[in-house]
């Protein structure tokens, strides 16, 4: 039951964040600002997938940290490229 509740909450969070991302270019006029917001949302969504869907929260720490570092580092690199 707990797994179902966690997965369902995570799915809702992911859907809502996807819809929010679509509206960034409309509600935020400055490109650099919505790039940062969209990439922060990528990190949050990635964390949900890694920890809840992939269940890596209870997996060996190495694999979780490796996946989490990917979803933090890649958007960070992309934002540096876009904002330079």
């Amino acid at each position: 039951m707990l797994a179902f509740r966690l997965a369902t909450t995570s799915w809702l969070v992911l859907v809502v964040l996807t819809l929010v991302t679509m509206y960034f270019p409309i509600i935020i006029s400055e490109r650099s600002a919505y790039i940062i917001c969209a990439l922060i949302i990528v990190v949050i969504k990635g964390q949900q997938i890694v920890d809840v869907f992939m269940e890596l929260k209870s997996a060996p720490r190495f694999w979780r940290l490796l996946l989490l570092s990917y979803i933090v580092m890649l958007p960070l690199i992309i934002s540096v490229i876009y904002l330079n």
């Binding site: 996807t18 949302i41 990528v42 979803i71 958007p75």
Partner: peptide
């Protein structure tokens, strides 16, 4: 996960 990055 890849699509989550690809989409935006």
């Amino acid at each position: 996960l890849l699509w989550i990055i690809l989409f935006p």
